[in-house]
Design a protein around this nucleic acid. Sequence first.
RNA 1: GCCCCCUUAGUUCAAUGGAUAGAACAGCGGACUUCUAAGCCGUUGAUGUAGGUUCGAUUCCUGCAGGGGGCACCA
Length: 580
Amino acid sequence: MGVQENNLRSDRIRSERAKNMQEKIKQYIEEILKELELPQVNFDVELPKDISNGDFSTNISLVLSKQVGKNPKEIAEQVLTILKTKNYPEFSNIEIAGPGFINFYLSKEYFESQIAQPVSKIETQYTDKEIIMEYIDPNPFKQFHIGHLMAGTIGESISRLYELGGADVTRMCYQGDIGPHVAKCVWGMIQHKETFPQDQDSIEDKIKFIGDSYVYGATQYKESPEVEIEIKELNKKLFEKSDAELQVYYEKGRAWSLEGFELMYKKIGTKFDTYMYETQTAPIGEKLVRENLAKGIFEKSEESDAIIYKGENEGLHTRVFINSQGLPTYEAKDLGLAVVKSEMGNFVRSIVITGAEQTDYFKVMLAALSKIKPEEAQKTTHITHGLMLFNGKKMSSREGALLADDLIEETKQKVEEKIVGREYTEEEKKEIIEVVAISALKYSILKQTPGKNIIFDFEKSISFEGDSGPYIQYAYTRAMSILGKVGEVNMDAKNNKDTYTIEKLLIRFESVITRAINELAPQLVANYLVELAGEFNSWYANERIIGDENESYKLLITKKVAEVLKTGLSVLGIKVTGKM
RNA sequence: GCCCCCUUAGUUCAAUGGAUAGAACAGCGGACUUCUAAGCCGUUGAUGUAGGUUCGAUUCCUGCAGGGGGCACCA
């Protein structure tokens, strides 16, 4: 019998979830407009930024005021009078505030029922839909730098957002294992023959060798015209696989690079479902471009034998798709990739994350794609991570950009210094350092709007206090510590005090997630979590939980806080730890 | 030269066209014999500039200034 009652109750509650509450309020208002014979207009029911302005708020009277020619407060009074006569049970209060907003305050019973609900998957427009995410895209033969770390962090987070929203996400890593950058590195490897690593050497040594070879090759390519010619020839040979000795260097370098990348993915907590290489997409893309040359989508360059796409007609610029040597460029390969993706599944959205410097390039590629495969272009969204600036300037891997590994190690060291003297076992210590360091790094990337540059300064960017990943982890740890001191939490506990502010924040989790998915905006989750953690820390400092007369309800809140923080952090790709 | 992005407190970042522009760090001042001080409380301090649209602009539009990125065979 109890079970049945619970089912009934949870059904009723589910239909009253926050997003539906917004629609419900909208309906109520629309009905009242009819009763008052006021015109139907577009108005919003929103979650006020400032929680003291109610749980929901509508701007109906402000929107209506000019049309009707009345003071907004007067209209609000009219609407409010009728609202009050209806005696809706879900609100404890409805009032007019500010310039004429009507603010709705939910009842204590509503909060009680919501707080007792477990955090679970969230119904969204992407539930049961397939989505493909492409991110990081590191090039074998080049080093894994901070830009890759940013792409990985954002890509993993958006993937997890979609997954929480019920989607089936395919994570793809697309790697440039052919092209001039490879030739530069292989050329460098040959110059450094004498220090060539042996098979039994460590992967770290091998990666370092590759990195050094690339930097050397790229520098020489830029500085010496003779080297430039050599490397271009080498590139063609690699593409045609016409030189057996070169292939040996190539295969070793490629394998070492990829092995190194796998270690890195593990460190930063991402894992790909599928890998694609430029050697695979190149022939497909090349064919596509040549086929569409006849149709007039592409054209022959007037200056060389290259095949180009003229973007000027669409306000873009010209890009070379097949170079004068007859080899497909990145542009053609990306077209090939789009075709490959479309054949991999029934994706409703395809998202690609790259550095912001590729914004204009991507527009041209998508313009070409929209003429060849309009439906694929339509589904594709390009999002960028900003550039990581050092001293206000972009740094390329040629000039030796900061490597992701160095940054991670430096951050770990910082954490270790911070916990000196605390009593942890070696195992705990290791886990805490790892989890806290990655959290600090990821949070500093995710709290910002993606696409904006990050001015990188270790002291300023990576924080362990205040608006930081560890701050949120710490709040979780405290909550868990309390829960660990008591037995079962009574899920039917009732609140014998006024509704707490933290409850108002807690019930917003779903709408934050929904909005973050729709706007591809993990920073909304980050901002929400730090606010929730802050509210919890404050509540914790000012209220006794265990031993309080309202203990059982406070424990229920604490449990919910822990769940929301854990789920929210997992969306950011941040782990929690029991102790810190 | 052309195109795109950015400009919010001393600093690093927030703010679905909405209410008193919100945090953090730094600064200044506190509390604490109590569930983890990576914590809590108080306080100083900001929308580059000139216009426009709007009941309402940090948000949209235009000009200007400053910064960043891109612009043919790199990715």
